[in-house]
Design a protein around this nucleic acid. Structure first.
Length: 467
RNA sequence: GGCGAGUUAGCCAAGUGGUAAGGCGUGGGUCUGCAACACCCUGAUCGUCGGUUCAAAUCCGUCACUCGCCUCCA
């Protein structure tokens, strides 16, 4: 399996620290509002990575935090006149709802920054003891220039940073020895949540939490650290500086970053008015479609979002859903129990698509190509499966498609919701009319069904409800 | 100013040396009472110019355009 590593700028063979296991840390959202569809991209991408590892037989230890102490949360709390944990708890709950709807598996651990303050103080103390941190007036800074490898992830040269971006240098916060230094701990301001620490009553800086949570739940060195590409600098760069200085060992072997989700080729932002929350989208689409849409492009390529593209994704996904639906029905009604030699051969043939799928996923999680393998399998099934086939064969095909879809976190199996008595009666009446060649009446009944939100179609095996 | 990414059919999107996967859409056809589904057919020489090579969408250089990071941000 090959993974593109931001650190080396190359695809590299994945070699786990511990055989058969993967430790993965994904930077999670700051919970000050409903998550937006941009937040959803890393969640979906890396959940898919995790599922694939699991499919390949790895035991995955997947950790993803919620940042529940932050300026934005505090601001929102003040606006509403509540404590900041009211805000964070509310949006963590909402985020979990969205995640479930997108079929994102809960992490092995979802740590909260506010529950890890002790570890953060310890790590900051450790950094200070080793000379990587210094404090002034209750604020603790990281001494960036002391860390040899600073810039190795984002490929930035410390001197370029200074020379190139004078604004920062000039604006450098008071108290810093060097404008590149960043905050590890800051004293509280009025009405802010705070914790007791050796330097001041205050709260942690923006980067220390991930270093600490990764260490606590996954160890000093982890296999994969992931997040959005915007986190490469400074967040991940700073995490490396903190963790490697404090722990004295490499922080993560593989760094994975997803590209941005854009709206009309532009970054999503509230000021441009092109801002969508996952909840917004869920009002119009099943979030499986959003998931499928995101996986239709490679995670390292920017992806554009639009209504038109969602419609296309919906139609594409429907093709798979329809095929599965047909197989399901055929399997349920098949009366042949014995699988034939020819059918066996066909199943073997269809297995090729599973291999194609794996090949695509092994190549840095090329989900776009992997989906192609599913479509190939769908076509194979649409072409070959009939009511003449044995149950074993049909279920075999069904399971193949189902398995591949599940790796992508797409659930193609229809939800078992029985039709109401009214609907059953209408369908019965329509078929009665059709038998009597009273097609006008048949069409009228179909329109009635449509009004009830029921779409039907006639197949060789009888009339079925599409959705 | 520094660093980086991208440019493939109407739309989306794979493809890193041997003459372009797949999906959506369009048009035509088969099937069907009709419809839907499905199936068959239908489309690009890969931003520009130049170079390397027997051979390039794929390597090198050029120009153009788009985008991202350098500040909280997935």
């Amino acid at each position: 399996m090959k993974i593109y590593n931001t650190l080396t700028k190359q695809k590299q063979e994945f070699i786990p620290i511990k055989e058969g296991e993967v430790s993965m840390y994904v930077c999670g959202p700051t919970v000050y509002n409903l998550i937006h569809i941009g937040n959803a991209r890393p969640m979906i991408c890396f959940d898919t990575v995790r599922r694939y590892f699991t499919y390949k037989g790895y035991k995955v230890n997947f950790v993803s935090n919620f940042t529940d102490v932050d300026d934005k949360i505090i601001k929102k709390a003040m606006e509403e006149g509540v404590e900041s944990d009211v805000i964070s708890e509310r949006y963590i709950a909402e985020c979990k709802k969205d995640m479930e709807a997108m079929n994102i598996l809960p992490a092995t651990v979802h740590p909260l920054a506010t529950k890890e303050i002790g570890g953060m103080i310890q790590m900051i103390q450790n950094l200070e003891d080793k000379g990587y941190a210094y404090s002034k007036d209750g604020t603790v800074y990281y001494r960036t220039r002391k860390f040899q490898g600073y810039g190795k992830l984002s490929k930035k040269n410390i001197d370029d940073l200074e020379a190139g971006h004078r604004d920062i240098k000039v604006r450098g916060e008071d108290g810093k020895d060097d404008p590149l230094d960043f905050v590890l701990w800051k004293p509280k301001k009025q009405n802010e949540p705070y914790w007791d620490a050796p330097w001041s009553k205050g709260r942690p800086g923006w980067h220390i939490e991930c270093s600490v949570m990764a260490k606590r739940y996954l160890g000093d060195t982890i296999d994969i650290h992931a997040g959005g590409e915007d986190l490469v600098f400074p967040h991940h760069e700073n995490e490396i500086a903190q963790s490697e200085a404090a722990n004295g060992s490499e922080f993560a072997h593989y760094w994975m970053h997803n590209a941005f989700l854009n709206i009309n080729n532009q970054k999503m932002s509230k000021s441009l008015g092109n801002f969508f929350t996952v909840r917004d989208i869920s009002e119009k689409y099943d979030l499986q479609i959003l998931r499928f849409f995101m996986l239709s492009a490679h995670y390292r390529n920017p992806l554009n979002f639009s209504e038109e593209l969602m419609e296309a994704a919906k139609n594409s996904l429907n093709r798979i859903l329809t095929a599965v639906d047909n197989l399901n029905r055929l399997a349920q009604t098949s009366t042949i129990s014995e699988i034939s030699a020819e059918e066996k051969e066909q199943l073997d043939q269809a297995d090729r698509y599973r291999l194609d799928f794996e090949q695509a996923m092994d190549d840095d999680f090329n989900t776009a190509d992997a989906i192609t393998a599913i479509f190939d399998l769908v076509k194979f099934s649409n072409t070959n499966a009939t009511s003449e086939n044995s149950k074993v064969y049909l279920v075999g095909l069904l399971e193949k498609i189902n398995m591949l879809c599940n790796i992508l976190g797409v659930d193609p199996m229809p939800k078992e919701v029985g039709p109401s008595e009214e609907v059953v009666n209408l369908i019965f009446a329509r078929n009665q009319a059709r038998k009597e060649k009273d097609f006008a009446k048949a069409d009228e009944i179909r329109n009635q069904l449509l009004d009830l939100g029921v779409t039907i179609k006639d197949t060789r095996e009888g009339t079925v409800i599409v959705k």
